[in-house]
Design a protein around this nucleic acid. Structure first.
Lengths: 198, 198, 198, 198
DNA sequence: AATGAATGAGCATTCATTCAT
DNA sequence: TATGAATGAATGCTCATTCAT
């Protein structure tokens, strides 16, 4: 398409990779520009300020996360809602192999959001969408009798998100991917044992 | 004791608080020195380089984490090993209220460890100690029949650690503490349901 | 006429206004172009360099100043030469209300002329023309006996110009226009008292 | 005295000279530092921000102006108040030879004050002090019968200040000093002719 | 005629660190 | 022990100008 859009994409990608590799401290206009093969003043032609580039990186990351993975859940479970929730874990497991850097960036941004209102807002949009999605699945499951009747849906939602972020963090910290795979299986099994109606 | 040791403690505390409040980007020798009430050049008399202060902060943090909390587990569970593991969660829950800043610092350092070998080594010591501790509890439980026989102990250990870091991250991101409390309860219940021998 | 000439006029006007509002520091090609509604690279098509635009601004300003005001001197004085000189003050007084920004620009340029030989030359043309005009009026008056016989014409001319620039500066500094009006009356009266043949 | 105070003075002097020579556009931290013989980062050790240095320059300039000149008025005039006012002109005339750069700096700052509230405030302090001083002299003179009875004191004050600024500007613009001297004489004579009681 | 892209130079400011006192 | 002074490197950003389209 437009050469400018391409450049923007390149710059966002370079920034994203840089954050993944060097952390927010390494996210420098000069470094991004160099990685994208242009002068740092030229970068500001595409993104008028560093913050704009960062926000674009976050937006791009959110889109990556929103895009559904093609792979189906590799585990068959009787109840549909339960299955859908478990599938989220396997989705994460797959992304962990596809683009592990994404988890590092996600963690960096999460922390950075504490001091950047705009980033915080952007990320909270993701959190809320995800939270709504999970809560919906859970309450549907409860209503249909697929999940335990006395489930504290908001608390379970929060727990699911914490687990997700834990995986993200563990991955970001540079853990063993295979060990993490098996841990995700355990988390899924835990969930299954807990959610099943007695 | 020694006035020098006191100063060092003050500086470490100031640094820790600064990291909690402003993130690693706000962790500046000038800022730390000012918070501790001395000239930034004097700070380098106690810690010859910024890295030394940071490493001391990490060491201090690890000691804080190693110190057991006085509070007993507020939930009674039949099997001792299961109870001990669940107790870890409630220990975290309590710390979350006692010193929430600690979780922020922990997250910041975890991420920073990716680019600072020394910090990574220090943190991995904690991870390994914790990992060993959890694995020991789990395998003891399996051997005594208190936990399910077919438990994949390493995977379950990794899952437990991911859950812990998830809570840490969720807390660091500035979530609602009360909601997080209930989420921890759910995590504990999940765990219980999963670990119980069939 | 030509669209290009129109554009040039627009750009000169935009530059002039910008200098009036933000000073020489705010006189930026980007800002001028934006104010005139075109790309800053396009501006360089009309004025190959920033200096060219500035020189055009000065030229434009000089033309504005050369154009006689339609208003007649609102004070009647017996001697024609004296009246003409006094009229200059009232001319200034009127311009002060019509286009106060002009005085700011004039002051900015005067100062800028110290470091821009071309601008200095342009302005000195104005100064000399004005100086010649005033000197002519004065010496005519002396010759005809309308003004004091022992008048030091060059010195009086310089004094008149200093007064004019003082008003300009006072106006540029953002003084009260009404107060300045009355001050100009006083200056005119001073002049009259001084020039009158004894 | 203190070496630090000396350095500060040096830096202020360097800044002042730089403004006089190159204008506000040439007033650069690097240039000032270089002129004072130190690294530009060291300059910020003495003045935490560029604005602080500038404000110090203004303060220094105001002090220079406040300091009375030792030379007595070289003209004898009957009435004391009239004499005092005329003396102000000769004070300026003398300073014009002693430190002509001061007038350039004054003009630059006056214009700069339009966009720097702090500088404007500092300069207005001088203006007001001066204005008060002149107004006092004038009204005293009127009261004692030394000056014309129907004098519009505020307007005459404003006129005097405009004349002063005109001389400043004319000097700043690089006029001939000797011609300016004679112009000042004319201005003084004008004033005398005007103020004299009929 | 118009503009998007690109660049080199420059600017104020911050930071970790060294050194002399 | 303490600190003021000093510096080099780096950062985000602005600007005038050039060039290809």
């Amino acid at each position: 398409m437009s050469a400018a859009a391409d450049r923007r994409r390149d710059l966002i990608a370079a920034a994203r990779q840089l954050i993944a590799e060097k952390g927010m401290a390494g996210f420098t206009l000069r470094a991004v520009a160099q990685a994208a093969g242009l002068h740092h003043a030229t970068l500001l032609h595409y993104f008028p300020a560093k913050a704009d580039l960062l926000h674009a990186v976050v937006e791009d990351l959110l889109q990556s996360l929103a895009a559904p993975l093609s792979g189906a859940a590799p585990v068959v479970i009787a109840q549909p809602q339960l299955r859908a929730i478990i599938a989220e874990f396997f989705d994460i497991r797959q992304r962990l192999h596809t683009d592990p850097a994404m988890f590092v960036v996600m963690s960096e941004l999460q922390l950075h959001g504490r001091h950047d209102r705009e980033v915080a807002t952007q990320l909270s949009r993701l959190d809320e969408a995800w939270s709504r999605h999970l809560a919906h699945l859970l309450s549907e499951g409860v209503r249909e009798g697929a999940l335990r009747a006395d489930l504290d849906v908001p608390a379970a939602t929060e727990a699911l998100m914490a687990e997700t972020k834990g995986i993200t963090m563990q991955a970001a910290a540079g853990g063993d991917l295979l060990a993490l795979d098996r841990a995700i299986d355990v988390l899924a099994a835990q969930l299954e044992a807990y959610l099943r109606p007695s």
